[in-house]
Design a protein around this nucleic acid. Structure first.
Lengths: 233, 233
DNA sequence: CGGTATCCCCGTCGATACTG
DNA sequence: CAGTATCGACGGGGATACCG
């Protein structure tokens, strides 16, 4: 229970509910479409389950989230009030991508990156057959260096072990560069031209890869001044 | 120093800087135009000076605020990055006013209310001569029951003691109702009609009073469903 | 899958007093 | 006016283990 600011200002009243650590990130996850407890956890892996549980209770009491216990598992769903937090998340993200360009070593996480990417695949753009993308992050120590994305027209799965299917495309990049592409700090064309990322596989697929991913929702936000944004085209 | 979320998501990076207690309220004050330390304090009176000082340092280090030490006193001014937090404050306030209609006894503060009102006077609408408005909050215990607003074409001052000038207008309302008017939860016409507020003074001035105040920036936000908003006209 | 229980540390914050 | 100094309590939240 966060304490009150003792102010009638609506900004203060809103922040009483939202300024606690992790809360906005949970809202972000819910806005993104996660609903199940363990699904939410994947979006905030460094949060303890106890604390996540507590926050979900708080958000429920605040009328931002509804807990549905239908058969099929428990689902946390945004209420009308919760859905209207979208502009807040949007404004925060747009500001963050514009003004916090430097992301540290500590902020990088291949699992989180793959988890984000798998949620933002343009299934229209991917081949009808099962497509397996192998990711290699040469700068990451072996347990987390190799990842696979298994994409079908209906679904996408993240694997941290070789799923066994033939690999269609291999993407090699430092974790930072792959993250920068995802965030829109670096465009695919620029990255390929500078050899910041390498795509291996049949030429036809290789050229198509950038179309497969809808990048971060904030990738398209304009950057201040001359900072690198997504290149048109 | 707030700790990191260890996430590359721009929402997380933004909240690392903004999710600490009081921080967004200071940004709100800066956006509103306050610049001097003790001026900022008036907007967040329950914050200790130590903590305000700490937050201002943090915001400065984060590149959100610049500290100007020109002669004329120290001024805290938003940087370009800081100014761009306006949409965040706006989104938070709009959400808050829509979804947090209940404000408790604890959130009411005549000093804060008068401080807000004095910053939002339409000097075009107020008579050319010095205008003194006396406020009376019958439900508030005497030390804080009576307030005065001394308005000139250039300036407006809040007084907690009779400034001595002849009073032009007396406004009487419970602190809650005056606050609800200020927030746009209750319109002037509705409040007057329901006798939730009383305006005493010359008829000509009485009718003009509602024009003198630009209400809270969030007063005009639409309310969900049938909740009371500002009445057109 | 969907959480609770427990433990303990350390940082945050509030309160108050004081200074250039 | 523009802050610092100091101090203590509390509770937030991280870690880990465990349960239905």
């Amino acid at each position: 229970m966060s304490s009150s600011y003792h102010q009638f200002c609506p900004v203060a009243k809103a922040m009483e509910l939202l300024d606690e650590r992790w809360t906005m990130l949970i809202v972000r996850e819910l806005v993104t479409g996660s609903q199940h407890f363990n699904e939410l956890r994947r979006g905030v892996p460094r949060m303890s389950p106890t604390l996540l549980s507590k926050r979900l209770h708080q958000l429920t009491r605040a009328g931002i989230v509804d807990r549905h216990d239908n058969s099929g598992g428990v689902r946390y769903v945004l209420t009308a009030a919760g859905r209207e937090l979208y502009p807040v998340v949007e404004a925060l993200g747009a500001w963050g991508i514009r003004w916090i360009g430097e992301i540290g070593e500590e902020d990088l996480d291949p699992k989180l990156l793959l988890w984000d990417m798998h949620r933002n695949i343009d299934h229209q753009a991917v081949p009808k057959e099962r497509t397996v993308i192998s990711f290699s992050f040469p700068d990451v120590l072996p347990p987390a260096r190799y990842w696979w994305l298994v994409i079908t027209p209906e679904d996408a799965d993240v694997c941290d072990a070789d799923p066994g299917y033939p690999v269609s495309i291999t993407i090699t990049a430092t974790l930072l560069n792959m993250t920068r592409i995802w965030r829109g700090d670096l465009s695919w064309p620029d990255a390929l031209h500078a050899a910041a990322v390498t795509i291996d596989g049949p030429a036809q697929l290789r050229r198509a890869v950038p179309q497969w991913f809808t990048l971060s929702a904030f990738a398209a936000v304009d950057r201040p001044d001359n900072r690198q944004g997504r290149r048109p085209g």
